[in-house]
Design a protein around this nucleic acid. Structure first.
Lengths: 130, 130
DNA sequence: CTGAATCCTAAAGGATACTG
DNA sequence: CAGTATCCTTTAGGATTCAG
């Protein structure tokens, strides 16, 4: 146990299998979060904090219930997102980032900044890149 | 001045369509680079510089020719990677990052650092997360 | 050797409708 | 409110084969 200037990371590292012969942090990180909606979902949870399903669906503008549900399940399995039932009577659920999920903020904000810097909305007439 | 080998962001922003009603930099950035192998390919091009096809295939350990070829084509369409034919006789091609591609390094290295910090290779006995 | 083209299967993702 | 359940289309990706 060396220095501990950083906030406590109580859980251990996530064990993630790698495609190639030698384990690679880029390959494996990519395998965790490089799905179409994952970065956006994580971003919205970072921005708005713990959210209910429909609240999240609102914020992740453009996603369908099915895909949001699937994505959250996947993120749950990967231990990046937690799901908590906060009420049974009016059934309510809350999604939040785990410590590992929170720690993705550097990546997510790097993506956001890059997008702001390098991308733009297509103008009316030009139908460009996907 | 004004010669070909000028980096320095001469090009404008890339026009990228967004799924939701309001354009979002995270959503759109995600749509560009969040494919299984894209971050790794970009990472290897950052690390090793312009590379030939098989050199790249070596470095992107675990990828098949077909998938590498498809991925490079996709990255080419998105103007993140350039393809240059450097020899016809022994047919040789060189792939390199465009200025926009290079500028992804913050994101890619953020992913690398995160992976090193939060992920680990599965131990022998435990078959864990994908 | 170089890389590209085929074939095929497995996922991912979207539209819609419907439950407790 | 918080999802499932279907259905369906598209895409990703792996194995293999082909061509220069």
């Amino acid at each position: 146990m060396s220095n501990d200037t950083e906030p406590e990371e109580p859980v251990g590292k996530l064990e993630v299998w790698c495609a190639g012969k030698e384990w690679c942090p880029v390959t494996t990180t990519s395998s965790l979060i490089c799905k179409k909606w994952h970065p956006v979902i994580i971003h919205r949870l970072l921005e708005h904090g713990p959210s209910g399903f429909n609240e999240l669906k609102e914020n992740v503008d453009g996603i369908s219930s099915k895909v949001l549900s699937d994505s959250l399940e996947d993120l749950g399995e990967k231990q990046l997102v937690d799901r908590e039932i906060i009420s049974e009577k009016p059934f309510r659920v809350q999604y939040s980032l785990t410590p590992h999920g929170e720690s993705l903020e550097e990546i997510i904000y790097a993506m956001q900044e890059w997008g702001l810097e390098h991308l733009t909305e297509p103008s009316e007439k030009s139908s460009s890149l996907v």
